[in-house]
Design a protein around this nucleic acid. Structure first.
Lengths: 366, 366
DNA sequence: AGGAACGTTGACAGCGCTACCAGCAACGAC
DNA sequence: GTCGTTGCTGGTAGCGCTGTCAACGTTCCT
């Protein structure tokens, strides 16, 4: 019905095709698979599109092709520093690809996750990134039935839905405790907050290491379901100290807690590391600048997000990785807070010790 | 032809309508404007949809209605704590509404912002949230031509595109400096990183306050374009101290820098606040737990994001706010790092002083 | 009583794009 | 020379939904 030159002056594929002197379908192909066109038509369509300032209509494309170019991402928290690094990795990888990111926050609730998953799946995403390996049975079933690639991030486990990228929190915690053992520490406390599955596995790693050395005592463990914070680190450490005044080290489930412990020690004039050693988890930026500098377990958060999104996009485009489960490992970054002698002289400007000793371990081999 | 019972067994609006015994268009209306239906049909459609587990196809809806239910959000950084709070506010507000969030990262580049804006606008978003008031001329023109509501967040300025929510960074900086004056400080340094427009305006506020008191000296200002970090705070403070050993206070453009300054002081055994007072900006959680507790300018980041998204959604739905520009103000939270006497005894557990004195100021009245 | 106004419903015709299949030329194999 | 085969192109027919308009019954007004 005389549908040329749409009233609102919008540029449709048909206009581009007309200007290029090809059929709409050929123009369409140019945007999806340029190699399928002859060079002549390819350049004609390209310049026509540029001249008209054509922008494809994603809704029409999604409707016609029965699939979207959206990657769904489900993470438990928007505030946690850990996830902001992961997210940045994901967004960086998605840029330049034709996929866009649809982000949702499960607030550490697997029921909420299930609900969001249902929502996402109904829109037929091109791919999905989900956090962790602890889904509801229902969620798990939906993921397995989904006809798109899926990456589980943050940790690795025995039974991937599809792809998986992360590291073993259990092994990482064991390595942290092993480091403290090496430094001659015996009464090592554990401080944890939120107690999501990954923190729980860090606790498990700590417990197993302590039990292996016949040093485990329940009262050395202080945890809470409350979301983590520096202030909470102060409070939990105070609790721990009240239970066990002879403590000679604390392994904190994350760096915020470690910073809180550091502050609380300073407040109580407890010498670090002479009286108590501190080890954190994640190696956030400030750990290297604290006084004393704080030992932590470095995790590759940005890389985790970036690789996950990259792998996912490759899989969507039909190039599945040969290795669907990727262990990114971790490193214990040894700093002053847990090493008995301050061997290095104070650096000129920043508190970062230039001579951080690193203990690198690929996780996953128990 | 014969398009009933789509092959893949997918539930379309037509199936719902058939089961409910109404026409598809009536069923469609149920999802968009239930009040337009008679009670009888409303309940019939509702139960039919529930029975079939109908989920609307957003792509088809977008194509047919020529508009999407996507709110575009442009922020400069995914890593910065400040923005993660804002984002959380935005996502929280979008939940429960029918709008979904499309997030993109401008990396503090207004050119990148322009590019993303073009991309977003091409998809006809339902609304847009952009950061700050410094857009390129081109971006500004696009925003003004856009036929959707727009909220500028993070700061307020004279000439809103549409709606605006934030506070005056200039006034907030002046208030921070005024507080230091009150405490008898005179040689007040400024430490800033990244120097995005908002940090620049904090610097402007600092400069004007110092000039008003005839205390401004260029060498009191240390800034860098480098992204902010705690480590950078250490380094910049060291620079500042080298230039001006008689310093008696530092105003840091954000809390990470302030923490770095704190650590560097500890490293150099500079007494806080006796020798040097520290004031940060944003009042991140850890400021209340540091030793000594750190004074900061509290900003309502979560509320900013939440209110912005709420206002935007209201505006999309046709209920424009009577007051399109909202000043959320700020508060100088006075803590030990800038108050001369430690009047409060040590709290039992956390470092947070229970008796934080607050100076609240609605910004915007110079 | 006649007609306007309203509330409710449905038919029709796309929205802009792509899946599918058919067509055609050019090429090599038999 | 005939028959595939490959590479490129185009026509047709929707994808699932909603905008528009018309039609209907009911109520309210004059």
């Amino acid at each position: 019905m005389g549908r040329k030159r749409t009233k609102s002056g919008k540029i449709r594929l048909a206009e581009v095709a007309e200007l290029a002197g090809v059929s709409p379908i050929t123009a369409s192909r140019f945007f999806r698979n340029p190699e399928a066109l002859s060079i002549a038509k390819r350049t004609r369509v390209e310049s026509a599109a540029k001249e008209l300032g054509y922008v494809p209509n994603l809704a029409a494309r999604a409707l016609a092709s029965q699939r979207t170019e959206v990657i769904g991402v489900l993470i438990p928290s928007l505030t946690n520093n850990v996830f902001s690094d992961v997210l940045r990795g994901i967004y960086d990888a998605s840029e330049g690809s034709r996929y866009s990111i649809q982000l949702s926050n499960t607030r550490y609730s697997i029921l909420q996750e299930e609900k969001l998953l249902r929502l996402f799946l109904a829109q037929k995403p091109a791919g999905l990134i989900v956090t962790g390996i602890d889904q509801t049975t229902e969620s798990r079933a939906m993921l397995e039935a989904a006809d798109c690639p899926i990456v589980q991030i943050m940790e690795i486990g025995p039974d991937p839905v599809d792809m998986m990228i992360g590291f073993s929190h259990y092994d990482a915690a064991r390595a942290a405790v092993a480091h403290l053992f090496e430094q001659g520490r015996r009464k090592i406390g554990f401080v944890g907050a939120r107690m999501d599955p990954r923190v729980q596995r860090r606790l498990d790693g700590y417990v197993s290491a302590m039990k292996d050395a016949a040093l485990f005592e329940q009262r050395l463990v202080v945890t809470t379901a409350t979301p983590t914070s520096v202030t909470l680190g102060c409070a939990l450490f105070a609790d721990l100290l009240a239970r066990e005044p002879d403590l000679d080290a604390v392994f904190c489930a994350n760096d915020d807690l470690a910073l809180g412990v550091l502050f609380e020690c300073r407040r109580r004039e407890i010498a670090i590391p002479d009286q108590i050693a501190i080890v954190g988890f994640n190696d956030l930026e400030f750990m290297a600048s604290a006084v004393p500098t704080l030992t932590s377990v470095r995790t590759n958060r940005y890389e985790m997000g970036n690789t996950a999104a990259t792998m996912l996009i490759e899989a969507i485009d039909g190039r599945r990785p040969e290795q669907p489960v990727l262990d990114l490992g971790f490193k214990v970054i040894e700093r002053q807070s847990s090493t008995s002698r301050h061997s290095d002289s104070r650096p000129a400007v920043s508190g970062a010790s230039a001579a951080n000793k690193m203990v690198a371990l690929p996780s996953g081999h128990d």
